[in-house]
Amino acid sequence: MGKFLLIFCLIVLSVFIPATASALEADEQADAQQPQPSGITELQNEAIKQQTSAAETQGMTKMEKYFYYGDKLFAAKDYTNAVKYYYAATKLEPANVNAWKKTAFCYYQLKKHNYAYSAFQKVLKYDKNDRDALQFMDFYKTVMETNRKKTEKREMTDSLWRSCVLPGWGQIHNNQAGKGIIIGGAFIASVGMSVFNVADEKAKYDKYVRANENWEIAYKEAQDAWTGALIWGIVGGIIYAAGAADAALNYDCEEARTAFLDYRDNALCICAQTRW
């Protein structure tokens, strides 16, 4: 009976313990979208052993030791091994913001940005105001926007109709903001000048029609205003047509595929990198 019970317990344990371990591992992966750092159950890294004396870690908790070793490796730019310690620390203390942050930055240095992005999401989960995480998220959002722009499907009609509604809008839609502002400004200015000249011509022509002396002067003034109105109208029409054509032709230009970079955040991101 005792042997039977012992065998039964061993069977149950052999089935339950691996199942539990597998479930935890899957949950962690799904939760943080992280690859499992492998083999960090003890201080097995020979390099760390060589660099670290027992006295240095005496009295530290296990998590503090992981952090300590991670920092040593990070300083030595051994990001591949450093991330294992940091990530192991997050397993011991999931709400530790610094552990997630250092994990994220190791992945950033390793150019595993999808992992870094997930780790920064974890940072923000526990501290939504973390400045470093916010800066890096901005950076990643910019990168993602750039990638989206590069791959998005663009239609000529999208640029064309915008330019037809308001000259310059099509260029702005094509990320040619400078050109768009110039075209829009020139169009508005030419239309304004045309309207002004039309009103001026009307007043001067009425004056001519009512004049009973000096007709030539009055007529010439009205004629000049009329000519000005027509010329500005033509200029406005040319700007309108040219703007629409330009917007249509450049609907898929290089600028249209480029996301606006937020240089402020980018600069902060670089500062963060330097500090780290």
């Binding site: 011509e201 001519y208 004049a211 002396e213 007709w215 007529y219 010329i231 033509i234």
Partner: peptide, 19 residues
């Protein structure tokens, strides 16, 4: 086009204007 427009005259419709 601008030259043609510049040459487009307004109507002279003033009964006191000899032209």
């Amino acid at each position: 086009a601008m030259a043609a427009v510049s040459c487009t005259p307004l109507d002279r419709t003033n009964p006191t204007d000899p032209a």
